[in-house]
Structure formats: structure tokens, C-alpha cells
Nucleic acid binder design. Sequence first.
DNA 1: CGCCAGTTTGATTTCTATCAAGACAAGTGG
DNA 2: CCACTTGTCTTGATAGAAATCAAACTGGCG
Lengths: 257, 257
Amino acid sequence: MFNEATFADDIAPASVPASAHVSGKAASSRPAQQCGSCSMRSACMPQALNAQELSRFDSIVSATRLIKRGDAIYRANDPFQSIYAIRAGSFKTVVMHRDGREQVTGFHLAGEVLGLDGVCTESHSSDAIAIEDSSVCIIPYALLESMCAESKSLQQQVLRMMSGEIVRESSLMMLLGTMSAEQRVAAFLLNLSSRMKARGYSAAEFNLRMTREEMGNFLGMKLETVSRMFSKFQREGLLQTHGKRIRIVNLDALGRV
Amino acid sequence: MFNEATFADDIAPASVPASAHVSGKAASSRPAQQCGSCSMRSACMPQALNAQELSRFDSIVSATRLIKRGDAIYRANDPFQSIYAIRAGSFKTVVMHRDGREQVTGFHLAGEVLGLDGVCTESHSSDAIAIEDSSVCIIPYALLESMCAESKSLQQQVLRMMSGEIVRESSLMMLLGTMSAEQRVAAFLLNLSSRMKARGYSAAEFNLRMTREEMGNFLGMKLETVSRMFSKFQREGLLQTHGKRIRIVNLDALGRV
DNA sequence: CGCCAGTTTGATTTCTATCAAGACAAGTGG
DNA sequence: CCACTTGTCTTGATAGAAATCAAACTGGCG
């Protein structure tokens, strides 16, 4: 049975009562929800829109879709038609090399938008794969583009999102290009911590949704190295781990690594 | 004396007669040129515009600016006001870590656009530094944004450019995250080769504008390693180097590394 | 001509990958 | 309920790649 992800095992944010989530239905596509009543609204794309724009925006968000763990919203070379706002759950985006090696280019949480890589060539250049049962809002790009021409604030929002993605990727290049394995893992944990916090969850204690191998593919190292770094931080008293359960004991020290 | 970069030491493309370049003047800012008569037009931003849009676009390109080797167009944390189209020359973009380590996030040639990282926070997140004497067109972002609201083709062009930058950076993450030093250097040379070719220069023989250290900072390795890989390719008969002068002897084999 | 930034090359160290084995937890089916 | 599978994670031993340290070479330029 499909259960919409609710971070039930993390410390829930006060602003997201469990009832705000739609109870699971196995259908893979459902009518759109209203952005105005979505629990992710403040973190999501239409944050900058006024009431009138919001209702217009609602009308172009055609549907939501449930994605099971391991399934893809889109894959590399799929024709580009829509972008996707994450309503609930988490995803990884992956670029593949012909020889099979893969690089995870990001982990994405609720409120974030996926698929902007497709604008440039009208086909996607990465896979977007759910790392837990998740749901997304489907935003047809052609309609979004049209509405951008009319709404300056939406246009600005889309451009800002794209630019933000560019900046995010630059800092990942910095991580991959200049940091040691130890520093990369620390930076990864801190980044995740602050994003969980921004969503109302505890910054110190949360569950990782990805495996050690996926982390390694993201951080440019092998899963064994990720594991060793976790053990190291634990020995040094910066961290407690129990499988995917993470507890950051000393956030400052982790930042100084 | 300032000499506007003309790749005079590379094999010149037939479509760019030397006279197309403005002769050097030490002034750092000059009136804008007309995009319609610019030798970079086909490779540059306004490629998608019709005559009327082009003239409107010309009017928002306020000026061109000469940048000497080593000087920056903008630096991290500078307020974001304009984006810059490279008329001639080459740049590197660099993100700095507090501890002084730097990651080169890209090398940029004529026709490419710099500064889109600033849209998201209204301040730049990287430095853009000329690696040879260069010139850029200044495109005030506020005006560009306004014109985007009116010209669908310009809006699309800007969105495509941004998306292209996202894709470019993803593939760089792949390079940094999964490839050996040897493969990175090979990929770098091939990439540069194809970009030189796209500009009408020889794909096989060109001058590097950056130092070994800058390449290393880009490729996530030390300058000595870059040098060793060059020597290795040379021993294997894939490449001939003489300082910054590069001659790719076996392009296919370089692609199979 | 000599200086200097940039480059090449060699010797050694350090870090991470690789290979291998075992631990652990969750889930399955008998 | 238990044996068993399976996927994930941890840990250790070793190999391999790149960094570091050091020295010498090159070519351009004042």
C-alpha cells in the first residue's frame, strides 16, 4: 500500500498537521490541489504571487502525481514538458555516464522544483528518482512560460529559481573540487540539517532518506568512505548514527571540520 | 598598451576579419556596439530575435567595457546589476571558500554570458576574471527583465541560457565526482576543442589562455597533476604541447580515455 | 643578461578506492 | 515463531591515485 511520505518518523513541524496531507491512494495521478491551501506553499514556487496570480497559477498546475520509492518522474532524454514541485517526499537527481557511472547531482525535499534542466534542449539531461514514496505537482512548462509573460512576479520567481540552481551547483563543484572526504560529509550533513530546520523539523535529529551509496555518489566518494566518516565523527563525539537515523551532537564542530 | 584579444595566434575563423574588432583604446567603458553587426552575433544572446526585437535589445545594451587580464568584471558579493556578454577574450569564474581555497567553475569564451548567478540573491556568488585582455557588453538586468515580459523569444532565450548553465554545471559535477585525473584532463581538452571549433577556429590546435594552476583549480586537481597528464598524453601520442600551445593529435583516442 | 612566473619531473606521503568479511535489521515464507 | 534471504552498513587489510615536497628547467621580458 502506498503511503504518502510525511516524515512521520521525524519531529513534525507545528505548521504541518498530519491532516494537511492527503491520505494515500494508489492512483498515480490525481486532480491538482490548491496551492493556497498547500502546506508547502511558503517554501514553494508561488510564494511571490498575489491572490489573483495564485488562482491563475493554480489553474495551470494540472495534477499531482504519486511516485513510489525508486520510480522516476522523468529520465534523461525524456522529452521536456513539465516541471515538478515536490509536495511531499524526497528525490535524487542523477546524471549518467555512458559507461554506467552515475553522479547524483542533488537531493531534493518538499517545496523544491525539479526538471529545469530540460528547458535548454527540450529534453531532460538527468533522472529524477524518488528516494521515498513521494508526491509532486505537475506544472506544464508551456503554460508556465505563457503566464510568465503576463506576471512579472512569476517571471522573476522562475528566473530566481533557475539562478538559485546555478548557485547551488557552483557550491557543489567547490565541494567536489576542493574538499576532503571528511569535509564533504560534514558539509552534506550541515546542509541537510539546515534544510530540515527550514521545513520545521529538528536541525539536530532526522532520518536520512538515501543510502550510503547514494550519498557517496553525490559526494564523489565510495559508500565505505561515507561510512568511515560517519564512524569517525561518532568517535569524535560530533554525531550519533544508527543506520539512517542521524543525531548531530556538535553542530559547530561539524562546521569547523 | 591594451590590445583587444583577437585570438591572433590561433587560426582565425573566416567569418571574423580582423577589422571587425575595434582597435584598442585604454578607456574602460565605451558606447555600445550594434548587436546586428557584431561578429559574435550568431553565438550570442540575441540570436533568436527578429529585426525589431534586435534593435530594442541593442538599446538596452548600454555599453561595452574593456577588461585587462587579471581584472574582474564583478566579484562575489558585489551587488547584481547587469549580466555580461563576452565580445572578445576569455574569462574564468571562481567561487572562493572562506579558507582561501578556490574552485574555478568555468572558463568562458566569446559569445557566452556571465553573471546569471546574481539573479537569485541580487548579489554575485562568484568572481568573473579575465584570463586575457577582453571586452564585454553590459546588459542591465532590470531592462532585460522588462524586455523579457514583452518579447517571448527573448524570455525563452534567457530561460534557455539559464537552463543550459544548469546542465553545464551538472556535467561538471559528473566530471569532478566520478572521473580520474586523466579522464578529466582529456574531457577538458575535448570540450575546449569543440568550443574553439564552434567559433571557427581549429579544433586540433589552439592556445590555452589559462595556466596549469587554473586548469587544476577547475578540474579539482593540482597543477603538477595537470602537467603529468599532459606529459602522459604526449608520450602516448595523443597530444603535443609546447607551453600553452596545444595540438590534439588523436582526438578519438582522447575521447576514449 | 638575469629574473621570474610558469612548467616539468622525481621522490615520498597521504588519502581514498578496492577487496573482503562480517554484522545488522527488516521482511518472507514455511 | 524461527530460519533464511536480502539489502544495507561497518570494519579491516591492502593497493593505487593524486597530493605534497623538492628541484630543475623554460621562455618571456624588463
